[in-house]
């Protein structure tokens, strides 16, 4: 099991399968207080039809990475300073704004956590979806647009779609708004859907509906999904592969089964043990001591070092990515050659 082979992204994945590849992405924010490394050397790849979950706490850089893919980082203060984002043979980091406009929404779509703030309150639902349709498909006529909007709303499970298209966002519930957001994202049959905490603002019963909807649509349309979340349970329900982020870095990467049943990194291990669960009886919750790190004051080496129960002297140095299988690696000194007796 233990070997220090190259990262899985350089492994045997057929290039035709790959749809999006992020290589060593570095995004920084220049603030008054100093330079924040929003994401610091993040690499992941997305295959056709795959769901990749990016999981992490606040400030872990999970959203920054996604926003970088769409080049939606506000500049300044943000800036992509290194790495590549390969999509369709184009490096999105180098792409012009004009190229990006064609990709955004058309090829890569995004849905956000707060459906309330992402919809324009003074336009009807139908008009908002119609506008994004016509933006990318100007040849579509008025009647055709309307028909397509209704079709989309039915696709995302909105009942009586013909009436709903004349309603305003405030007339819809949170779950319905998120469905509308998904319909908007799907308007141009994107190949990649980035979902940034799509269910965090929703109730559990609605969350189950929306997650199921995304799963169903993905199978139907053959999309790839990047699911950004802080909730490991959502990850377990939806993902094929998982990237666990901490302090702007991926600390562990693997298939969903490897992440949940063969977790290697002490952070992931602690995170899983500190969650109260419905299906397990626990007396006292395990706690990860300390605080979520301030992105301004990240420690040298492993960012989890100050909170890690198994910290060693070597943790001050940048930990290497240690592979455990074709798809599974963790960035931790514990598993390095001549590591510890752990």
């Amino acid at each position: 099991m233990r070997s220090t082979r190259a990262l899985p992204s350089k492994g045997k994945i057929l290039s035709s399968d790959l749809i999006l590849e992020v290589k060593d992405l570095q995004t920084v924010f220049i603030t008054e207080e100093g330079v924040v490394k929003g994401c610091n050397g993040v690499s992941y790849s997305l295959k056709k039809g795959e769901t990749l979950a990016v999981v992490g706490e606040s400030g872990s850089g999970k959203s920054v990475t996604a926003m970088s893919i769409l080049r939606l980082i506000p500049e300044p203060p943000g800036k992509i300073v290194g790495g590549q984002i390969l999509f369709d043979g184009i490096d999105l980091v180098q792409a012009t704004e004009k190229q990006m406009r064609k990709i955004r929404g058309n090829q890569i779509a995004m849905i956000f956590q707060e459906p309330m703030t992402s919809l324009n309150p003074v336009l009807t639902v139908g008009r908002q979806i119609g506008e994004s349709l016509q933006l990318h498909q100007p040849e579509l006529g008025k009647a055709a647009t309307r028909a397509r909007v209704i079709e989309l709303l039915e696709l995302v499970g909105i009942p009586s779609a013909e009436q709903r298209i004349n309603e305003f966002p405030h007339q819809l519930s949170g779950g319905m708004k998120q469905r509308v957001m998904i319909a908007m994202a799907l308007a141009c049959n994107p190949r990649v859907l980035i979902a940034d905490e799509p269910t965090s603002a929703l109730d559990v019963t609605i969350q189950a509906q929306i997650l199921n909807l995304i799963r169903k649509l993905q199978q139907q349309l053959g999309m790839s999904v990047i699911m950004i979340t802080h909730d490991l349970a959502v990850v377990a329900e939806t993902a094929d592969s998982v990237a666990v982020m901490y302090g702007g870095r991926i600390v562990e990467y693997g298939s969903v089964d490897e992440i949940f049943h063969q977790a290697k990194h002490p952070y992931l291990e602690g995170l899983k043990r500190s969650m109260p669960r419905l299906d397990v009886e626990e007396e006292e919750l395990y706690t990860i001591e300390g605080m979520v790190p301030n992105p301004l004051k990240l420690p040298s080496g492993c960012p989890f070092r100050p909170r890690c129960p198994q910290v060693m002297d070597r943790c001050c140095e940048e930990p290497p990515a240690i592979s455990f299988s074709e798809t599974h690696y963790a960035r931790c000194w514990l598993y390095a050659e001549g590591g510890t007796d752990a």
Binding site: S173, G175, M176, D203, V204, T205, I206, Q207, A208, Q209, L211, N212, R215, D231, L232, A233, V234, V235, A236, E237, A239, V256, D257, F260, H261, K272, M275, R277, L278, D279
Partner: peptide
């Protein structure tokens, strides 16, 4: 019952495809 069944379980081996509760409050 529906509420409990809606809670995602953090274990991919216990994944369920069904939606326990339709409709909205």
């Amino acid at each position: 019952k529906a509420l409990f069944a809606s809670v995602p379980i953090p274990d991919p081996r216990k994944r369920s495809e069904k939606v326990p509760l339709q409709g909205e409050i």
